[in-house]
Design a protein around this nucleic acid. Structure first.
Lengths: 138, 138
DNA sequence: CATTTACTCTATATAATTTGTAGGTTTTAT
DNA sequence: ATAAAACCTACAAATTATATAGAGTAAATG
């Protein structure tokens, strides 16, 4: 399951995508619309900004706005940013690789091999689906 | 990512699958082979037994053994049993459905719709891959 | 240029979940 | 009878997720 953080990130991105023409949008507007704690959302939006998805403006009339095309934002990137690995095991993660402590020889591990296949199939979906797909369904 | 519980379950099932002919196998044998805490593994094997994957024998000469064909044990069933939902959101889970608190109208939620597609694609893989696939790779 | 507004940053508190442990009970073989 | 090994319940420890606090910085505006 996605963490709330990631789920909220998707809600916020969707909101910003729907209101693209309206310039900077307040954290508060999003947090009220989706019943999300203001401060919690603040942290999330900041991460999304640092990762290059959002821009922001400080001060009066400030807020956040999308700086990428929705179709250029695959689900996989958001999930990795906020939730970490997409792979089901650390030993098959492309971006967060770690060997399994209990395994002496990953080369001979059948679980490892199968999970590589699962990862690749999962990635196909999560890289293909983008914010645009979410927007198209609203 | 899978919890350790689920990962250990796969290791144990694989071990039992590889040693199918040898009758009942001790928890201790598996826990030592895979460096898993004996007591923790005990709980896991018990769950697998209650769910109908394993049989057991008490007392001297006792232990656990597979009672299903490896090809009849899809990854999805083990993951669901020990980790819960496969879906990325509660509102699209087939086995553990819950509405999202922050959503007033799930019918109009684009995230919901996209995550249903992701779930269906993910399930295709996890239902197709079985313990047999893990065994074949060792 | 003072004031208000709203994002930025870091640290911390709280809650929930996962992981692991303890200790006794029941069953079985010898 | 005794020892071996699964069964069961409850709890403890560790980790992670969620949420909050409060001071800092930048921008707009009158």
């Amino acid at each position: 399951m996605l963490s709330k953080k990631t789920k909220y990130a998707f809600h916020a991105l969707t909101y910003l995508g729907k209101n693209k023409d309206q310039g900077a949008i307040l954290i508060q507007e999003i947090s009220e619309f989706h019943n999300i704690s203001h401060k919690f959302l603040e942290n999330i939006l900041l991460e999304l900004k640092k990762a290059g998805f959002l821009g922001s403006k400080k001060g009066k009339g400030g807020g956040y706005y999308l700086i990428k095309e929705p179709k250029e934002i695959p689900l996989s990137r958001i999930i990795r940013l906020l939730d970490g690995p997409i792979a089901l095991l650390p030993c098959v993660s492309l971006n967060y690789y770690e060997p399994c402590e209990e395994c002496e020889n990953q080369e001979q591990c059948g679980l490892n091999k199968v999970m590589i296949e699962v990862r690749d199939e999962t990635l196909k979906i999560l890289e293909m689906k983008t914010l645009q797909d979410i927007l198209s369904n609203e």
